[in-house]
Design a protein around this nucleic acid. Structure first.
Length: 552
RNA sequence: GCGCCUGUAGCUCAGUGGAUAGAGCAUCAGCCUCCGGAGCUGAGGGUCAGAGGUUCAAAUCCUCUCAGGCGCGCCA
């Protein structure tokens, strides 16, 4: 939408040049925007003000010249004003907006999709929680953002791969295995083994120990065929997968650190390559990577004095591997507490000769859960942290996802559990879904009266002449730009805001005006509008991974 | 101490250099013979943390200060 208006403005400026009214060769980056106030038109541009200094003429004078050219072709343009310091305000004819309404009906599920990605391969890695415990609320936010972003990127023409990186090698999973073994010995072996401070103490450890017992207690010789570590890791991953599935998140690829990096020697391959390039040195019996050469503020250890590889060593190999798989963009969704890692990961990409601009990192800030306006204690101490599972069970998948997507990722989020459950308009999830359900109800009501959804050619679109109706149509017209902007900025929350605004236009319209009336022409036109709102809400909610209940 | 993020209405937050800074909630005042009142209408509420600077134009960009969060390991 904005793009077509930009064309109109650019063409007008070209015409001014031909007429000799404007001499500047290089066009500045003009901005077309939707003004906040109705009296400033449907669109406004600052073109004249940007040209003013080069042209050495007052901005308003230039604006008048351009405005005259915009008026000339009259392609859907109703009126052009020059206002304020030199803005050109453009008012569109109603017919222009009705075109979008027809688009919605014509394109249906595809309304709002685009092809800005042009099939480019993009990988988005998210959640990637260690399989040493259940997913907590922070992982949930990352899951919602990552999954929704994947939907948005797919809708805008990218070839998206969703990936979960499984840290199934290293110290943490070893400790998990040991933790499970001690609980097992304690409960079934009658042995009281010491349980160190840094072991995993959650109840899930005991549950996994019991699962192990159920499976292998009758075949003692089999106990040796699978280690506690392997079993525990697998069991935890199953739980994580189940939680994610119930949250509506499914991955294309589960990338195992152990199998796909360690066991086949890719970590060593990566280190050797860095060594050949001269980026490795030894000090204090450890092997270091000169990340400082690439903008990091410290050099980093890859191989420790005890011979064990660091987590970072795997990460270096992993990101090298991502690049080898041919993605034009790789997105990492990380907890904000990992921001200190950014510089070293970028350094590793650069060291291998890649442009680190292919890497986009999205940081997910903390979530504070509130119950009756009081924060729920969230320390990672045993039993205190709230799992994603608990929240899904309490407020439901839809409310949970919606709340996670209500804020920009890198700002703190307050999640009010009571509000999320409430079946009342102050709950934004409810408010949005209710608008959808309400439309379904209207359509059903119409059907019961023998009125089915009208076809485009049977609509007298001029009957949608109320200001509220035009406002809704303009909002619908905006949707494709919102989706595009959300994809480019990688900000799913823009969709959430948009849907709230759309619902906020629909509810009052409904309240004031009857859709199904004795006048069949008006009824048809309004049903047509309602159906369009329904389609856009469905498309938007689908991008967020939130369901569209026809009844509530 | 250094680095990153944040600071906008009572609260939670939007706001790709543009005009008189917005929304929801909360508060207050109203509205139910009617397609779902599970809703709607209206009002009040702001030194955009502060100070400089760049610009025709700054909540937005730059510098400094203050406040909060996070990170600064041969942990993950």
């Amino acid at each position: 939408m904005i793009a077509t208006v930009a064309d109109i403005v650019k063409k007008a400026i070209e015409n001014c040049k031909k007429a000799g009214d404007i001499k500047t060769e290089e066009l500045p980056d003009i901005v077309i925007e939707k003004p906040k106030r109705d009296e400033f038109g449907d669109f406004a541009t600052n073109a004249a003000m940007l040209l003013a200094s080069k042209e050495e003429k007052p901005p308003r004078q230039i604006a008048e010249l351009i405005a005259r050219e915009i008026r000339r072709p009259s392609s859907h343009v109703k009126k052009v004003d020059v206002a304020g310091p030199g803005f050109i305000n453009i008012f569109m004819e109603d017919g222009y907006w009705f075109g979008f309404l027809k688009d919605v009906h014509g394109l249906k599920q595809r309304y709002g999709t685009a092809d800005i990605g042009a099939g480019a391969k993009i990988q988005i890695e998210f959640v990637s929680a260690n399989p040493t415990g259940p997913l907590h609320i922070g992982h949930g936010r990352g899951a919602a953002v990552g999954d929704s972003l994947a939907n948005i990127l797919k809708a805008t023409g990218f070839d998206v791969t969703k990936e979960y990186y499984v840290n199934d090698a290293g110290r943490q999973v070893r400790i998990l295995g040991e933790s499970v073994r001690r609980r097992y010995d304690e409960e079934f072996g009658g042995k009281k083994a010491p349980f160190p401070e840094d072991f995993y103490k959650g109840d899930y450890v005991k549950e996994v120990a019991r699962d192990y017992w159920k499976k292998y207690s009758n075949t003692p010789q089999a106990v040796s065929t699978i280690t506690f570590q392997e079993f525990a890791c697998k069991a935890m991953l199953e739980r994580i997968k189940k939680d994610l599935k119930d949250f509506g998140v499914e991955f294309d690829n589960w990338f195992s650190e152990k199998k796909e990096l360690r066991d086949n020697g890719l970590v060593m391959t990566a280190i050797n390559e860095l060594e050949k390039k001269g980026f490795i040195f030894s000090e204090d019996d450890a092997q270091w990577f000169r990340t400082m050469q690439f903008g990091d503020d410290k050099n980093r250890v890859l191989s420790k004095a005890d011979g064990e590889l660091t987590y970072f060593a795997s990460d270096v190999a992993y990101h090298r591997e991502k690049m080898k798989r041919g993605f034009s963009t790789i997105v990492n969704v990380w907890g904000a507490d990992h921001h200190g890692y950014e510089a070293r990961v970028r350094a590793s990409l650069k060291a291998f000769g890649y442009d680190d601009n292919v890497l986009k990192i999205i940081f997910i800030q903390l979530v504070t859960l509130l119950r009756n306006s009081v924060p729920v204690p969230m320390g990672k101490r045993e039993g205190e942290f709230v799992t994603l599972r608990q929240v899904i069970d309490e407020v439901g998948k839809d409310a949970c996802r919606f709340f996670f997507l209500m804020r920009k990722s890198d700002t703190h989020l307050e999640f009010d559990l009571e509000l999320a459950k409430k079946q009342a308009p102050e709950n934004p999830v409810f408010y949005v879904q209710y608008a959808y359900a309400r439309i379904c109800s209207i359509i059903k009501h119409a059907k019961e009266k023998g009125i089915s959804l009208p076809k485009t050619e049977h609509i007298n679109i001029k009957l949608l002449s109320l200001k509220e109706e035009l406002d809704i149509i303009k909002k619908l017209a905006l949707f494709p730009d919102i989706v595009k902007g959300s994809a480019i900025a990688m900000e799913p929350h823009r969709i959430t805001f948009y849907l709230q605004e759309l619902a906020a236009l629909f509810h009052p319209y409904y309240n004031k005006n009857r859709v199904v009336t004795e006048d069949i022409q008006i009824t048809n036109a309004r049903l047509y509008l309602c159906e369009a709102v329904k389609i856009v809400m469905e498309n938007g909610l689908k991008l967020l991974g939130i369901s569209t209940p026809e009844e509530m």
